[in-house]
Computed example of a mutant assay.
Amino acid sequence: MSNEHNILIQELIKMLQGGGAHATLEDALSDIEPQYRGVKPHGLPYSIWQLAEHIRIAQWDMLEFSKDGSHQSPNWPDDYWPKESEPADGAWEKTIEQIYADRAKFIELLNSGDIYAKIPHGDGQSILREALQIADHNAYHTSEIILLRRLLGIWK
């Protein structure tokens, strides 16, 4: 691989992990006491739990789409958002673990092939496009989590 390609891969990984120009998802999701995870402050439509679970579902869908032609995406938008505002017992930890595990799996995809090639079962998408979409989507919702934390008085 060319030096330029390696530089691009490293920059994509930095985007996926966040933190270059803003707080990371890890920062946004750390040290949130259980009593705050399901609160919808000031009439906002989502809780921190719903945002975290939405990130998990969307990122998982993009990962699976990128690697598996038989993957069936959830129905948009209903199946991308949890109905419950609070996580069930153990769901918070499971969601957070899967977000980070799926991100690591996607980074493996970045390092394993042609990021520019069209995904065979897609309609023009590439691994590069999916990487940019995951990074953009996660950054957007990370900022929403931070906003909710500020409104709840639990941000740094």
Results as ranks from 00 to 15, higher is better:
residue 104 A to F: 05
residue 114 D to F: 05
residue 57 I to Y: 04
residue 142 T to A: 01
residue 98 Q to L: 15
residue 46 Y to M: 02
residue 86 E to S: 14
residue 30 S to Y: 09
residue 109 L to Y: 04
residue 57 I to R: 13
residue 87 P to T: 02
residue 140 Y to D: 14
residue 64 E to Q: 07
residue 113 G to S: 10
residue 75 N to W: 07
residue 93 E to F: 00
residue 90 G to T: 05
residue 123 D to L: 06
residue 104 A to S: 14
residue 127 I to G: 07
residue 47 S to G: 08
residue 87 P to D: 04
residue 80 Y to M: 02
residue 40 K to S: 02
residue 28 A to Q: 09
residue 78 D to W: 05
residue 42 H to F: 15
residue 67 K to N: 03
residue 112 S to F: 00
residue 102 D to L: 02
residue 54 H to E: 12
residue 114 D to I: 00
residue 43 G to F: 03
residue 93 E to Y: 05
residue 71 H to M: 03
residue 115 I to H: 03
residue 60 W to F: 12
residue 39 V to A: 10
residue 74 P to T: 12
residue 42 H to C: 04
residue 121 H to P: 07
residue 119 I to G: 01
residue 77 P to N: 12
residue 124 G to N: 12
residue 92 W to D: 03
residue 63 L to T: 00
residue 33 E to I: 06
residue 110 L to S: 01
residue 146 I to Y: 03
residue 35 Q to P: 00
residue 39 V to E: 14
residue 33 E to H: 15
residue 49 W to Y: 15
residue 135 A to W: 13
residue 30 S to E: 13
residue 130 E to C: 14
residue 95 T to N: 09
residue 105 K to W: 09
residue 71 H to W: 14
residue 41 P to W: 07
residue 102 D to N: 14
residue 68 D to S: 08
residue 109 L to Q: 14
residue 59 Q to P: 05
residue 135 A to C: 08
residue 76 W to P: 00
residue 120 P to N: 04
residue 142 T to E: 06
residue 95 T to F: 13
residue 125 Q to R: 10
residue 35 Q to E: 15
residue 134 I to S: 04
residue 128 L to M: 11
residue 131 A to Q: 08
residue 114 D to Q: 07
residue 24 T to W: 04
residue 146 I to L: 12
residue 95 T to S: 15
residue 52 A to W: 11
residue 109 L to H: 00
residue 121 H to K: 08
residue 48 I to A: 11
residue 114 D to R: 03
residue 38 G to I: 09
residue 70 S to F: 03
residue 112 S to N: 13
residue 111 N to F: 06
residue 103 R to G: 11
residue 133 Q to A: 15
residue 81 W to N: 11
residue 89 D to Y: 07
residue 97 E to M: 07
residue 60 W to N: 07
residue 42 H to Q: 14
residue 113 G to C: 01
residue 56 R to C: 10
residue 22 H to W: 12
residue 119 I to S: 03
residue 20 G to N: 13
residue 119 I to W: 00
residue 88 A to K: 10
residue 77 P to L: 07
residue 140 Y to N: 12
residue 62 M to C: 04
residue 128 L to C: 06
residue 67 K to Q: 10
residue 126 S to C: 06
residue 68 D to A: 06
residue 118 K to N: 15
residue 119 I to L: 09
residue 21 A to H: 12
residue 20 G to T: 13
residue 95 T to M: 11
residue 89 D to M: 02
residue 134 I to R: 11
residue 146 I to E: 01
residue 51 L to Y: 02
residue 68 D to V: 01
residue 92 W to C: 05
residue 80 Y to C: 09
residue 26 E to V: 11
residue 135 A to R: 08
residue 84 E to H: 02
residue 47 S to P: 03
residue 31 D to V: 00
residue 54 H to Y: 11
residue 107 I to N: 04
residue 115 I to A: 01
residue 72 Q to M: 05
residue 21 A to Y: 08
residue 55 I to M: 14
residue 80 Y to S: 02
residue 70 S to Y: 03
residue 59 Q to A: 08
residue 105 K to F: 10
residue 108 E to P: 02
residue 44 L to N: 09
residue 63 L to Q: 01
residue 56 R to D: 12
residue 125 Q to M: 14
residue 142 T to S: 10
residue 41 P to H: 06
residue 50 Q to N: 09
residue 112 S to V: 00
residue 145 I to F: 05
residue 28 A to V: 01
residue 109 L to N: 00
residue 78 D to R: 12
